[in-house]
Design a protein around this nucleic acid. Sequence first.
DNA 1: CGTTGGGTTGATCGACCTCAATAAAAGTGG
DNA 2: CCACTTTTATTGAGGTCGATCAACCCAACG
Lengths: 248, 248
Amino acid sequence: MPENRSSEEIDAAPEACQRPHAGATCSTCTVRHTSICDALADDEILALSQMSRHASYRSKQIIQEEGQPATEVANVVSGIILLSRLLAGGRRQVVGIAMPGDFIGLSMADQNAFTTTAVSEVHLCIYPRPRFAALIDDRPSLLARLHESTANELTLAQDHMVLLGRRTASEKVAHFLISLQERWTRVRSNSPRIDIPLTREDMADYLGLTLETVSRTFSRFFREKVLIDIPGGVRVLDPKRLSELARH
Amino acid sequence: MPENRSSEEIDAAPEACQRPHAGATCSTCTVRHTSICDALADDEILALSQMSRHASYRSKQIIQEEGQPATEVANVVSGIILLSRLLAGGRRQVVGIAMPGDFIGLSMADQNAFTTTAVSEVHLCIYPRPRFAALIDDRPSLLARLHESTANELTLAQDHMVLLGRRTASEKVAHFLISLQERWTRVRSNSPRIDIPLTREDMADYLGLTLETVSRTFSRFFREKVLIDIPGGVRVLDPKRLSELARH
DNA sequence: CGTTGGGTTGATCGACCTCAATAAAAGTGG
DNA sequence: CCACTTTTATTGAGGTCGATCAACCCAACG
């Protein structure tokens, strides 16, 4: 059974290393220019960094829970986070995957719209929501950036609706792998290697499938030499064939 | 065969009645306070109305096409619009339904992310994108309202992902009917009558089903006295049973 | 070592799709 | 207003993709 801890704010659990910090870290931040922070001038960054705290999460740890009051918002500094919703009968749908540079709490709603779960070691840069909201009111450029991110997220959501509603299992898996690869290249360099920190079940819940179907689809891709299995992910052998399978 | 006209901007076709107009209409606009215009003071409304034009569309008419440059944004004044994406093999996924008060072009992207199609007589209030963008830059309150709408749209998109990925056919249809009813009550008064201007195929493409499955599901709901068939829509006989079927 | 979480694979089942025929509406033009 | 076409809806028969149920493997770990 998973740990399944409840928390009314972004998790400040003993096992989640946290360090309030003042100032200097933003200048060395690895997502400084890929996150919404990029919209801010140096003096504004200072204001932001002064209200921030950092926290780490272990894999499988729940960060925020659906329906709970949202007291904080955060930037993902490293690691991968699943955004999911629960349904009657234990059914789960993963509605998004957050990666380094992504912002958690785009909508600035006062209730969490989804559960956030770490699927690898995760580092967050966390801001109190009221103070972040105040900063937004002051800084239209930050709001513009926030809106840009939200609009981008909406486009991704629409892509995913198409995937969930109208694609076959193998199209889903192939498409997932390609989009994961693209998102990795935005963080690291491009590579035929795709790291997959998600379990088969996580992927199934993202793709609207069962874990068995995901497993079978991977097996078939291995058998057909489209991919090879490597620890912690896959390596793409036949990128052309993979994108044909994804049918974009 | 449908008319299938191509258009690089919001349709100014001869059959789409259009009238540029100055000023006075906003004060009598039926969606004045349910649209993003609500964020604006009277003098700003004046500025907005001076850049606007109105246009009407007949049912089945394509308003904008996916991938085309987006030169205009618009408010829905009346009628219903489907936002859809096309996929290889003629597959279509409806990613959203716009109703009176909704804004088309939330993301302010320069390419249309989807095709917009009228499914009833539609009236739009249209603004040139560059001038609307300039107004946003001037007016943080408008940007805030735009962001709010986009965030709201994102939440709806996440709901829909759950529906597409994890609900059964009858849950999908029941859920669709309830959400349609809820959205109608935001425009009109609450009623057991639900107007459905969409065809079975439109609904199928929205719900990730085939039109036959949608038809069969309706037939079953009629047979089980959950709904009765009325011209142009349905009447809910057993609201309790309907929401059970939707399994919130 | 046993235990536990994750993965694979097989056998079977069923929800939904596909194909097809028919009916009912809704336009369209004489 | 009535034939005629076109669009939309219904219903059936049969097929299939992915789900379900279940057994087993493997690696990590206390």
